[in-house]
Write a protein that binds this DNA or RNA. Structure first.
Length: 583
DNA sequence: GTAGGGTTAG
């Protein structure tokens, strides 16, 4: 246009600057800024607004602020763009400050401003500020706007307040696909997978799911290890041509990995044409969970060779992979690579991996010193990782010292009291177990009950410890008794230490037999066709005695058993387990 | 003919 000698006017300049902001062409944008000033558009409101947006969307917040500060006239559009600019850089507090400032200047926020400020609150979990905005919305009758209600639900979801999100959702007269996706994704992210799945079913009577819906619902299947539900959704993805979406492809691989289907996951991973950082991180974490440490390392190196730089999340994956396979030197190597070669400052999660790695490999005092020398304040998970190590190596004395740190940091978390109680029980210090029980009792805490579940023909069967309500309860008990007898015949005696009670051996054995994972495994063996892999998931860590029995059962009934606990997978096959003792 | 907003994977 310029070469043809046609003059630009304000509309031309605004359009082309907007073009730059939507493609992040900062350099061309700057040039246009200069050109516009020379062409004497420098005081035009619409031009300054588009420049402000261009700078903030291209990541040059300082220039955006410069435009905002120097422009003569400011409209609601200018304020909204500036608020969005701060939010984009993670400076939500500044967004909120600006929001109040604009009201003071007598400029009323409109629905664009409201969605922007809600997004800012969502990004950093500013629930209280978000609630203030909600009140403003009610006072100004803005809730009928879809964008506003959707942003409001997302704010509540990201602040972890799904009850409030659902309230907004249920009061919406009109819902669109974004409304459904926001709720489903919110439930998935807030560890409410059943709610996510139920809403997904309900959605299909109202709205047609899209690829984003798939990316929202798959993590729910993953967290439940609901393989069959996940496969149904995979079918949905194939029928609707969503497979090419990389978010969906990555979520699928992750789902199969967390459902224990490593081979299928690898197959799908190989089919992703352009693997990104998330694809690789998922695969590395998956190998780690399944105990394939060297495969995880190979994948991590392959990723780097393909030119993808690891970030802090992918380092968590590789460090955990090392820890699950007991690869101490390799783990240290990655920890140092992260700091020295990649310039990533380790966070609590990374320190937790190293403590875990040291503790699991028996370097308890080294782990203790490592924690003491950490440049950031350790949290309960850090000390908890060492406490786990104390259990593996039966170090009661250190355990007591470590436990006090843990109890101070997370006095409400019963898991840690139980862990220490286990350490005492395994050392047969029953007096101490009793004292600990009293301590829990005084606080009015209750142990998180163990439960295990198994999916059969799409239905999830849940078992809690001591469960005898199931129709097959008698058969289950019979199978467990038979297994125990055969185990004893071959010299495997029950690991009474895991019974956690002071009782005689028969009682202990009964308590152990009631563990939910045993019941679920037995139920799977009885219910699934011969040869089919039994897949059980448990909400806590697997018990040592159950682990022994699972190994034996896999040989006795000639069947693969895959048990997922909170920490990792155990593949039992022909009498041994893939974890090789690292758990 | 021109400026600002909501949902997705580790």
């Amino acid at each position: 246009m310029l070469l043809s000698g046609i003059n630009t006017d304000l509309a031309t300049m605004v359009s082309v600057v907007a073009g730059c902001s939507n493609t992040g062409m900062l350099l061309l944008g700057r040039t246009l800024h200069g050109y516009a000033i020379k062409a004497s558009f420098g005081r035009e409101l619409t031009l300054n607004n588009s420049l402000l947006d261009m700078y903030s969307k291209s990541g040059d917040l300082n220039s955006a602020i410069q435009v905002f500060e120097t422009m003569g006239e400011r409209s609601v559009v200018s304020w909204t763009s500036m608020i969005a600019g701060y939010a984009r850089e993670g400076l939500s507090d500044m967004s909120v400050r600006l929001f109040h400032e604009m009201e003071k200047e007598g400029i009323s926020p409109d629905i664009f401003t409201i969605t922007t400020i809600l997004h800012a609150c969502a990004c950093t979990g500013l629930l209280e500020n978000g609630k203030d905005v909600h009140n403003y919305i009610k006072e100004n009758k803005m809730q009928s706007d879809l964008f506003v209600s959707n942003a409001l639900m997302d704010m509540y979801a990201k602040c972890g307040s799904m009850g409030d999100a659902h309230l907004v959702f249920s009061e919406m007269q009109v819902k669109d696909i974004v409304s459904w996706n926001t709720m489903i994704g919110g439930y998935s992210k807030n560890s409410l997978p059943n709610e996510a799945l139920n809403l997904f079913v309900e959605m299909q009577y109202n709205s047609k799911p899209n690829s984003i819906t798939m990316a929202c619902i798959l993590p729910a299947c993953a967290s439940l290890a609901a393989l069959e539900r996940g496969q149904e959704i995979h079918g949905h993805i194939l029928r609707n041509g969503f497979s090419l979406d990389r978010h969906v492809a990555n979520a699928l691989v992750d789902m199969y990995l967390k459902c224990g289907a490593l081979g299928l996951a690898r197959l799908l991973f190989d089919m992703i044409p352009a693997k990104d950082l998330v694809s690789w991180t998922v695969m590395v974490a998956g190998y780690g969970m399944h105990g394939y440490g060297s495969e995880a390392i190979a994948a991590f190196n392959e990723m780097r060779n393909s030119g993808i730089e690891p970030d802090e999340v992918s380092f968590i994956s590789i460090l955990y992979a090392c820890s699950h396979s007991g690869l101490l030197d390799e783990g240290w190597g990655f920890f140092n690579m992260m700091r020295n070669n990649c310039g990533i400052e380790p966070k609590l999660e990374h320190y937790a991996c190293i403590v875990d790695l040291l503790a699991r490999t028996g370097n308890l005092s080294k782990a203790y010193r490592f924690i003491k020398r950490m440049p950031i304040e350790p949290d309960a998970t850090i000390w908890g990782a060492l406490l786990c190590g104390c259990r593996i190596y039966h170090d009661v004395k250190l355990a007591e010292k470590v436990a006090e740190h843990v109890f101070e940091l997370e006095p409400e978390n019963t898991g840690y009291y139980v862990l220490l109680a286990n350490i005492y029980a395994e050392a047969e210090k029953w007096e101490e177990v009793k004292k600990l029980r009293e301590r829990i009792g005084r606080r009015g805490l209750r142990k998180n009950p163990g439960c295990s579940w198994i999916e059969i023909k799409g239905k999830v069967h849940i078992f809690v410890a001591g469960d005898s309500s199931h129709p097959l309860a008698n058969k289950i008990e019979l199978l467990l008794k038979k297994t125990r007898t055969r185990m004893k015949e071959e010299g495997h005696f029950p690991k009474m230490r895991y019974a956690l009670i002071k009782a005689d051996d028969t009682e202990k054995e009964m308590a152990l037999c009631g563990h939910s994972e045993k019941i679920a495994m037995a139920f799977g063996i009885l219910s699934l066709p011969p040869g089919k892999t039994v897949r059980v998931t448990k909400n806590l860590r697997v018990c040592g005695d159950c682990h022994e029995m699972a190994k034996f059962m896999s040989k006795m009934v000639k069947r693969d058993i895959i048990l997922r606990d909170t920490n990792r997978f155990h593949h039992f096959k022909d009498g041994s387990c893939s974890c090789r003792g690292h758990w």
